[in-house]
Computed example of a mutant assay.
Amino acid sequence: MTLAAAGDRDLLFVAGGTGLAPIRALLEEAGARRMDRYVDLFVGARTAQELYGLDDMLRLSQRHHWLTVRAAVSHENIPGQQGTLPQVLHEFGPWDRHEAFLCGPPDMVTTAVRTLLHQGTPRAHIHHDPLDTPVLTEPLTPPRPGQEINQL
């Protein structure tokens, strides 16, 4: 995912859990470019305690008038936005004039893509990492003496 695909449209960033890390890199790139467009960032998690990096994003929004940050939680009743990120996106949409960048758990990304498509966002304006990348099944550390490694 790169901002080069965004053209001159306003940006929508959607980050679930630690998916905020790549989205943050895009935000920093947007800030360095001093773009003349608005950015809406939605950060979500199951509980408020799991909202990774939210404080940093809120401080960033205080420094940049073009950035709006909204957080949502799905499994806890707290003040603010409640529900999954796709539900909150639906509530604040439509996003058909934005370039959307999504990162997070595959189920969230898939459901958010469907929400955006349903609201009229062109498929070509929705960006996310591949969802079919296989996960590692072998340990990352070398085996200790006496341990066997499964052969692939």
Rank of each mutant, 00 (worst) to 15 (best):
L131C: 09
R97N: 14
Y38D: 13
A15N: 13
F101R: 04
T133K: 12
F92Y: 13
G31R: 10
P134C: 04
H64E: 02
I78N: 01
G17R: 09
T2V: 08
D10C: 11
A124P: 00
H128L: 00
G53E: 02
L140W: 03
R9I: 03
E138Q: 15
T47M: 02
L58Q: 13
E50D: 13
V113E: 12
D55E: 10
A112W: 01
E148T: 15
P122W: 12
E50S: 14
V113F: 05
P143R: 06
D40I: 07
Q49D: 09
T121Q: 03
H118L: 07
A45Q: 06
H90M: 03
R33D: 10
L41R: 13
A5P: 03
L20K: 14
H90N: 10
M35F: 07
T137Q: 14
A25L: 07
G146D: 11
R34C: 01
A112E: 03
G53R: 03
H65M: 03
A100W: 02
V113I: 14
F101W: 15
R70C: 02
R123A: 15
L89A: 08
P22L: 00
L117Y: 05
T121V: 02
E99C: 12
F42C: 01
T121G: 08
L60V: 06
T133E: 11
A15E: 12
L60D: 04
D36F: 04
L20A: 14
H90R: 14
Q82V: 14
Q119N: 06
D8R: 10
W95F: 15
A5V: 12
G146K: 07
N150E: 09
D96K: 08
P139T: 02
L131G: 15
V43G: 00
L54F: 05
G7I: 09
T111C: 09
G93Y: 01
P134L: 03
A72N: 05
T137M: 10
A25M: 01
T133I: 14
Q62K: 14
E29K: 07
T18L: 12
R34Q: 14
P142Y: 01
D40C: 07
D132F: 08
H128C: 06
N77F: 11
E91D: 15
L58H: 09
L12N: 05
G7L: 10
T111Y: 06
R63D: 04
V135A: 13
F13I: 06
G16P: 04
S74Q: 06
R46E: 08
Q87C: 02
F92H: 15
R24I: 00
Y52N: 10
D56Q: 11
H75I: 00
I23D: 08
R123H: 07
